[in-house]
Simulated assay, not measured.
Amino acid sequence: MENNDPRYVRSRRKLRAAFLEIAHDDPAKLSVSAVCEQTGLDRATFYRHFDALDDLVADALGEYADRSTAQWDATSTGSGTQFDESSAIFTAYLRHIEENWPVYRWALGPQGSTKTAHVLLSRFARGPASELTRLAPELSDEERDFRAAFIAGGILGACVHWLSTDVPSCSAEVLTVWILRSAEQNLEQQPW
């Protein structure tokens, strides 16, 4: 159950913002102490929200993925034809990654956390699962979830590959088209 107490929500937002700011400047300086110092919150407050630094990283990056997935789900018509809408939402998400390149590069790179990758993978799967429910209602829940996980894995894999260089090798717009066209071609070839 989510805690909606305004003080709790404010503290959590401060912790997320501090993480992003510190990690954007220099991910090597990221620590619970640095986050607490940045926010003016004590360690007890940090640990009321998160068990470890990895949990904060996964929460902060997952929260933004959730917003994008919710937008994608809201535009889904079940026809598979909302390419322009999906493209705009996905491009905005990839621009967020570009703007926070050092953060995502660190979090999803070799020194990052599997927890963050797992959280993003599960969040990325929600949109395709919802779309598949509408596109192919005859699919079992298990098959739908496997297909959504496959699509989410492709998105995450493309992002990890994109983040493997010091600077983006292509724009968010180009990567969006490549990913969505690949998914679209995959869907067209699938016998439902």
Rank of each mutant, 00 (worst) to 15 (best):
F50Y: 15
D84H: 06
T91Y: 01
A44D: 03
G154F: 03
V32H: 05
T39S: 07
R67L: 08
Y8L: 08
R105V: 06
D84M: 09
C170E: 14
E85N: 09
T133Q: 13
S122G: 09
F150I: 10
A183T: 13
Y93C: 09
V167Y: 07
S86M: 14
C159G: 12
A88P: 08
A183H: 09
L180I: 10
Q82D: 13
R134N: 09
A183C: 10
A23W: 00
S11F: 01
A28F: 07
Y8G: 10
S87W: 02
T114M: 09
L156H: 03
L156D: 03
L30Y: 00
P137N: 03
P137E: 01
P137T: 03
D145F: 02
F50M: 07
P102E: 00
G78F: 01
L139Y: 04
Q71F: 06
E138D: 14
W192P: 08
V35A: 03
L41C: 11
A17G: 13
D166R: 15
A136Y: 06
G153T: 05
R13Q: 02
A129Y: 00
S11R: 09
L132A: 08
S33Q: 06
E63M: 11
A183P: 04
Q190G: 11
A88F: 04
F50T: 03
S11L: 04
N186P: 05
A158W: 01
A152T: 05
F124Y: 12
E184C: 07
L180S: 06
R105D: 06
R16V: 14
A52E: 11
T75V: 15
E98Q: 12
C36R: 03
W106V: 11
R16E: 06
D141S: 14
S140E: 04
I89R: 10
L187S: 14
N4D: 00
L56K: 05
A23S: 15
A23K: 00
P102T: 02
H118G: 09
L139P: 09
T75N: 12
A148P: 12
A148I: 02
K29Y: 04
S113T: 15
A107V: 02
E2K: 14
S164W: 01
E63H: 13
N100H: 15
A152E: 02
L187D: 13
L108K: 12
D25L: 12
R144G: 14
T81W: 08
A52H: 15
S113K: 04
Q189F: 08
L61T: 06
G40S: 03
L56S: 08
E63I: 02
T75I: 14
T75W: 05
